[in-house]
Each structure stands twice: as structure tokens, then as C-alpha cells.
Simulated scan of single mutants.
Amino acid sequence: MKKSSFQTVFRIMIILMTVLSPSLLLAGEIIVIANKNVPDSQLTKDEVKAIFLGEKTKWSNDSKVSFVVLKTPEDQEKFMKDYVGKSPSQFNNFWKQQVFTGKGKMPEAFDDVKALLDYVAKTDGAIAYISSDAPAGNVKKVEVK
């Protein structure tokens, strides 16, 4: 490859890396996961939203829902926007208000996908979200319609 061709290709690569967000290039889709004992394998987007806003507190077999969140910025931003209809800061403020008024407690939040997966795998009724390119481990994927 001639030097000028290499420089042209290099410039195009720099432009593409500058224009395209790294999170768009690296992040997978968001999937909802649950403990294998959770009786529900399908949820609507409205049900997912209701779970993460503390409105849906029981599974179809009347067992307790236990939701946790992942604090990785890209995953949290995408999940909150696509499923909850809030930004991460709006979601946190919502839960702070719930705590302040005695209507709820802050959801447990994990910085690490492995720790979140371990929690969901070991906790009856647990539900969370991860990037589709993360290894799902010993949990089940919940289909969201």
C-alpha cells in the first residue's frame, strides 16, 4: 500500500472513530434476565417498567419481585430510556423521593456484571438487565414484548 493510500485510510478511520460514539460500536442490546425460579418467562414493556418503578411487586405465582440495577453508564442509560422512560438521574431521583416519603427503598445497584449475575442467580424472584454481549451465566432470559 502506498503511503498516500495508507494516509487516506488512516484519516477515514480517525473520522469514523470521531463521528461514531464508542458506546454505539461496543454496546450490545439490553436484555432482561431473571432467576431461573421466576415463573414468568415473558413480560410486556409496561410490566418491566412497573417492576423497576416498584409498582409490580409480585410474580404470577404471587412470589416477591426483587429487582436490581446495573450501574454501567451505557447499559443503564439504554435500559432506562428503552424500558422505564426515564434518564438514570430521573430514575435515581424517583427512588430518592420514594425513600424520603417512606414508600420504598433504593434498589440495589451493581457496578460489576458478574456480581449482578451472581445475585440474580442466587436470589429467588430477582430480575435485572444486562447487555446482550455479556455472558448470562446461570440465569434465564426474559422475553419482553
Rank of each mutant, 00 (worst) to 15 (best):
S63G: 06
S66R: 12
K64S: 09
L70S: 08
V144E: 04
F6I: 10
K141L: 13
L26C: 09
D112T: 10
V68K: 07
N93H: 11
E108D: 11
E55Q: 15
A136H: 11
K71I: 01
M17T: 15
F91P: 00
A50S: 12
G137L: 03
V99A: 14
L24W: 14
S21N: 14
D62Q: 11
L24S: 10
I14Q: 13
V19P: 02
I33A: 03
I127N: 05
P107L: 09
M1C: 05
V99I: 12
S21C: 11
K56N: 04
K81S: 14
N61W: 03
L20D: 01
L116Y: 05
F79P: 01
V38W: 00
S41P: 00
N35P: 04
P135H: 11
I15P: 01
M13F: 12
M80D: 14
D75V: 12
K141C: 03
K145R: 07
Q76S: 12
A115C: 04
K96C: 02
P107Q: 04
K3R: 13
Q7G: 02
T44L: 01
K56W: 05
G85A: 02
W59V: 01
D133M: 05
A121H: 07
L26Q: 10
D111Q: 11
S66D: 15
G125H: 04
P88Q: 02
P39E: 08
S89K: 15
G102T: 05
N138P: 00
E29W: 00
E74R: 08
G125Y: 09
Q76F: 15
E74V: 15
K2P: 07
V19F: 15
A34T: 06
I14D: 07
K122N: 15
I130H: 02
F79C: 02
W59M: 05
S132P: 05
E47W: 09
K56Y: 03
D124K: 13
E77A: 12
D118V: 10
M1L: 09
K58C: 00
A121F: 01
K86A: 05
L53W: 06
D46W: 00
T8I: 13
V32L: 12
K64Q: 13
K114F: 08
Q42K: 14
P22W: 06
V144D: 05
K145H: 06
S41V: 10
K2H: 09
I12A: 13
S23Q: 12
S4T: 10
Y119N: 12
A134W: 01
Q90T: 03
P39W: 01
S5L: 14
I33C: 02
S5K: 14
Y119I: 03
A115V: 10
S132A: 12
Q90S: 08
K2C: 08
V19K: 04
D46T: 09
W59Y: 09
N92E: 14
E143K: 15
L26N: 09
K114A: 14
D112C: 05
A50E: 08
D124P: 11
L25K: 03
L24M: 13
K103S: 09
